[in-house]
């Protein structure tokens, strides 16, 4: 941990600082552009500088029933997929943490696979399985697809927290008369709660704007990302798309930010105690 060496660490050269902060700017400015364009009165092109200023598109977007349906579907899918990921990911993390059995590396590998392989592989694989088994496309086919890659997010967060948790605390709890269930409720859960929160929020954000796998598992249903995707290749409602994109950023930003703050915070306090 670099905590103490910070006083003596050398200053970065101007070139490095410039490159570093230039890269940060590169990472962030496209999102500001979207905010900017939500106020354009221009319906047919992406003219810059904006030919004027208007806020009417927010109202127009609010009136669109198709958008509301897509938004609701996406929120529902993300909620259910997150719950599934929380349960499965926590179970896997608990199993891997509890014991030293032979297959723990393979489990990490298997869980990582859905995000290490291109999304299209997961998507088309699920598509062939759904087709082969003659399962009709539904809400649940989308959820099942999303859960495959959300599990690993929860798993990683919870496992990392388990590893930072003092194992004797669990022994102490049982020693003081608490059975396994009480120990889970009073000692384990409070300790992993923020990790669950962080993992769950990332899983939610991941599911909420997933498009590649969803394309193959949604059938005729339109999630919000699928709606945006249809606008990408054939733009019909440019101004409304701008508003939707902004809404997606806003909905996902908070959970992501909170999750990152939680994990950054917990690794910071760990640095202090060591």
């Amino acid at each position: 941990m670099p905590s103490k060496s910070s006083d003596t660490r050398p200053g970065a050269s101007w070139g490095l600082k410039l490159a570093a902060f230039g890269t940060l700017l590169f990472l962030h400015f496209p999102m500001w552009i979207i905010f900017l364009y939500t106020f354009t009165p221009d319906e047919t092109t992406y003219t810059f500088p904006l030919p004027g200023f208007t806020t009417k598109w927010f109202g127009v977007a609010l009136q669109r029933a198709d958008l509301w349906r897509s938004l609701t579907l996406s929120l529902q899918v993300a909620t259910v997929a997150t719950i599934a990921a929380l349960i499965l990911g926590t179970f896997a993390a608990a199993a891997v943490y509890r014991s030293n059995f032979f297959g723990r590396e393979s489990i990490s590998f298997l869980l990582l696979l859905p995000i290490a392989l291109p999304g299209i592989v997961t998507g088309i694989a699920l598509r062939t399985a759904i087709g082969g088994l003659d399962i009709p496309f539904s809400f649940w086919t989308i959820v099942i697809g999303h859960a495959t890659f959300c599990v690993v997010v929860v798993y990683n967060n919870v496992l990392a927290r388990f590893r930072r948790t003092n194992a004797t605390m669990i022994e102490a709890s049982m020693d003081l008369g608490a059975n396994s269930f009480q120990t889970f409720r009073y000692v384990v859960l409070p300790n992993i709660a923020t990790a669950l929160l962080a993992g769950g929020m990332l899983a939610f954000a991941l599911s909420f704007d997933e498009v590649i796998v969803t394309t193959f598992t949604a059938g005729q249903q339109t999630t919000l990302p699928i709606w945006i995707f249809s606008q990408l290749s054939r733009p019909r409602d440019r101004p409304v798309t701008n508003v939707v994109a902004t809404i997606v950023i806003l909905i996902t930003f908070l959970p992501i930010f909170i999750a990152q703050k939680i994990s950054a915070g917990s690794s910071e306090t760990e640095g202090e105690t060591k």
């Binding site: 003092n166 004797t168 605390m169 022994e171 102490a172 709890s173 020693d175 003081l176 009073y186 000692v187």
Partner: peptide, 10 residues
């Protein structure tokens, strides 16, 4: 009951 080496306080 046990008093642990690292105390294991919650």
């Amino acid at each position: 009951n046990t008093v642990f080496q690292d105390y294991a306080l919650f």
